[in-house]
Design a protein around this nucleic acid. Sequence first.
RNA 1: CGCGGGGUGGAGCAGUUGGUAGCUCGUCGGGCUCAUAACCCGAAGGUCACUGGUUCGAGUCCAGUCCCCGCAACCA
Length: 679
Amino acid sequence: MSKEVKRYTITAALPYTNGPVHIGHLAGVYIPSDIYARFLRSNQKDVVFVCGSDEHGVPITISAKKEGVTPQQVVDKYHKIIGDSFKELGVSFDIYHRTSDAMHHETASDFFKHLHNEGLFIEKVSEQYYDEKENEFLADRYITGTCPHCKSEDAYGDQCEKCGTSLSATDLIEPKSALSGNKPVLKETKHWFLPLDKYEAWLKEWILDGHKSDWRSNVYGQCKSWLDQGLQPRAVTRDLDWGIPVPAEGADGKVLYVWFDAPIGYISATKQWAKDYGKDWEPYWKSDDSKLVHFIGKDNIVFHCVIFPSMLKAHGDYILPDNVPANEFLNLEGDKISTSKNWAVWLHEYLEDFPGLQDVMRYVLCATAPETKDNDFTWKDFQTRNNSELVGIYGNFINRVVVLTNKYYEGVVPEREELSDYDKEVLAELKAFPAKISKSIEAYRFREALMEMMNLARLGNKYLADEEPWKLVKTDEVRTKTIMNIALQIAANLSVVSEPFIPFSAEKLRTMLGLDQLLWEQAGKDNLLVEGCKIKKAELLFRKIEDAEIEAQLEKLEATKLANQMVKSQKANVSFDDFCAMDIRVGTIIAAEKVKKTKKLLKLTIDTGIDVRTVVSGIAEYYQAENIIGEQVSVLVNLASRKIKGIESQGMVLMAEDKDGALRFVKPSDVSSNGSTIA
RNA sequence: CGCGGGGUGGAGCAGUUGGUAGCUCGUCGGGCUCAUAACCCGAAGGUCACUGGUUCGAGUCCAGUCCCCGCAACCA
């Protein structure tokens, strides 16, 4: 069922505006999508590449509350940081929009109204969890409890991260409010649901049969597991005051669920762009000969492959994504990137620390993009890739060619005479590159494409080394000219095929060679540089990155680690009575054994002087069971008992926790009798 | 039997539909000296975790085993 594609609609996941963008986002979404969009434009395709800030939802209201500002102030701040840094990195969005914009409110609202008028929603008055202490309805994400499927005790209200099941908060057994820790109460509220179950059969056919071979296995597998479990109607509205008001009767105080409105943001952005440039947005979303591609991270698969397509299908006018090339996650120096722990390389900081080196980060992140599995970013690797690949192979080749041309011919492109067999071979290889690179990009294999691009530079270096024009120039001028001409053609081709990956350097190169922006279809030709034209003086495309710069970055990360381990600040005051309420005694460990199937737990038997009791303690990483028998410890004996891993724990052993998390017993300095009180 | 990812030359990784095992870094030797001590060539180094199976042929498919790493869980 191949159809001719007339235009492309490329979307990049909308960054959630409660923090800046980091390298994980870039490697997963923005670099690949930008390469794809630039590649298509170079092929003269009709492309719209959209993105924008995702500015609604509960987490933003919480950040706002914490910082004592309005949600709008929070999103304004990050919208600017994110938008500016994307621009500086050269991410070529046709528009970077935002979901708090009026255009988006209107579009999302209309979308809802359309489905509403067609009777495609289920309206349900249901009982939702309500936190009486905080005086608000609780978003699914802010309720935790036991998963009905796998019995995991810490499932979230929207999804169990343990078994991956998509849930409703009311499915949870023993729910708890994540805001206050209270048990939430059920309160009646009316909501609109999209009956996903009605689209299940269709989704199965569309994805499981239709995209078995062209979607990535991680995406396909994820979808399959959801579809196999069966879909439930899903609420598309929420009780909240931050978002897009629900355009229906009896919907006061309700807004569209952020996951309903966010993907519509792609559509609004396209509309705004069309308006700005006097275009018609509709074909990009409604015409069968348009190809829609969503670039996302793996955390977004269900929304882009199941929910949003169901919305589009329900609406009826829209086309569906042709592919959703989701990437995995990028780690940083071996540890998971974490916004809350500040364990990240933030784009806006990188741009400050390494001014003018946008292409280096673009290159490295593409080369190490987590296309098939989680991957690791290290600064050492960043340095090596820059120094040995960008500088040593690409930059050096260009420099050699340009320097020689200037030296021998004062920058004038020499004429090509008779070709040797080897010349012909090299030109044939050159000609094959663009197609190879295209093929990889079209299959969303950007690492592979990048490697091929680099191989073209390698071909150039090899050609020079084999032909040694610096020797021949003394004996055979004609031959030397031919060689230099061919080397220059390779350089010119590099400027074309490397543009999607490293646009800043490609442009520098074009300028150096005196070329206009060339199109992809011209790549592979052996006459991009016309004989007699003049090129400019050599200018380095890339510079080496010194050890000191890498060390500075590593120190920055080290500082973050230390900051995370800072001595904890003082807790709120308690009364003397509160303190006296705790009964702490000296006890002696008389038996200890590891609790099976746990990493941290030891089951201790302790003589407290009062009795002999069992205490489960999370110290197994620091103490071996057999080594602590006979040790005296401090025990909080009147703590309510609790079952841990099926063992009744009657108290708590007091531990000193060091900055690095290491635990040590708090004990009397001399042996004391069991049951001695501690106060 | 919680979920997932992985085990390929010293290190880090590719290996798409099964058909002579590749890349980058490192090491050693050589070439070149146009070039940002960069470039080019060559060499050493792998029983592709293990065991069975399918096949003319398996790193690649199937079954099982072992190990590692995330996440989750456990921490009163």
